[in-house]
Amino acid sequence: MDVIQDYIEKCREIVTAVEDQKKEIRQAAEWFTQTILAERMVHVFGSGHSRIMAEEMWPRYGSFPGFNPIVELSLTFHNLVVGANGQRQAMFLENVSGLATRILRNFDLRTQDTALIISSSGGNVVPIEMAECFKEQGIRVVALVTKKHAEQSTSKRSDGKKLTDFADLILDSGAPMGDAMVKIPNLETPVSPGSTVGGAIVINAIKAEVARLLTEAGHPPTVLSGASTVGAERSAELFEKAYDEHAHRLARLYQSVGEPGNNEWSDR
């Protein structure tokens, strides 16, 4: 049995599953483009390993300002696995009701914003409540889940609602139920997940379409580019310019925090 080829073939199936969602990906890109053109930000959140998708969106080579990766270390720091700051705590915290509200209390959210929430199962409390909070502010929510896995998962919320219940648009990573894709002879459980593969394809397809739309609108994005692509001097210039733009956009998310009329949902 060639398990390497098996995994590669299943990844090809994921590519096809993403390709079948081009209409939905274009819709997400249109909403995100509107946000960026309004000089606001697309908020990207994922707990656990879904954090990978938030960081895939920005900042890295081939990406550009306009996205606010909300990476909460208490929910995503896996390096130590056990002991202080271990995985058990992170898995516990991602099902603590009210944490999403406290995270978003730090930002001055506006209806021009949009949000991309990533959760393979769509059933953990913090990503669900994150989407719920955005919706309460009149902000469009795009959910990236693993459809087959999410459909079979049980919500950790007492009311049974899932991330998809608070989404205006649902995208699918294309991975199977349980995520792991390769069965090994004489091994009880499958190995090698696929949601990261599918998620990364979705993220970068959105990114490409947003870049196209921004450029067509006369506002080409400032893209982080390596010296091997544009030369060392231009690369350094682009990095500084992109980081400055990100800082200016981020400043708008803080400037009115706590003022009357803002974040009124934060104490619910």
Rank of each mutant, 00 (worst) to 15 (best):
V82Y: 14
A242N: 08
L73Q: 05
L93V: 00
A38G: 08
N79M: 05
A227E: 14
K207D: 03
E39Q: 14
I70V: 15
A247Q: 08
E94P: 06
S121I: 11
D267T: 04
I118L: 13
S121T: 13
L80S: 04
Y7S: 13
V44T: 13
L238W: 02
A205C: 14
E9Y: 03
D20P: 00
T164C: 07
T76S: 15
N124G: 01
P260L: 02
A131S: 10
L163Q: 08
L187E: 03
G66K: 11
F134S: 07
I70N: 04
M57E: 01
A180D: 13
D179Y: 02
M181Q: 12
S195G: 11
Q5A: 12
W265G: 11
L93N: 15
C11L: 06
T16I: 06
Q89L: 15
S256I: 03
T76R: 03
E209G: 07
I201W: 03
V223D: 01
L37K: 01
K22L: 13
L224A: 05
V142A: 03
D168G: 14
A167H: 02
K207S: 15
D179N: 07
V42C: 10
K241N: 12
I139C: 12
S153E: 12
I8M: 15
V230F: 14
E94F: 02
T76H: 04
F67P: 12
E209P: 06
Q27I: 03
G199L: 05
H248R: 15
V42S: 06
A100I: 00
K162R: 14
S74Q: 09
M177R: 08
F64C: 03
G218I: 12
T164A: 04
T154D: 02
T35N: 12
A29W: 05
I4C: 11
Q5P: 02
N68L: 15
R110M: 02
R234L: 09
S121M: 10
T222Y: 03
T33R: 07
G62V: 06
E9S: 09
Q34A: 14
R12N: 13
R268I: 04
I118Y: 09
T35G: 05
L187K: 08
R88G: 10
T189G: 01
N204W: 03
D267R: 10
V18R: 08
G138Q: 00
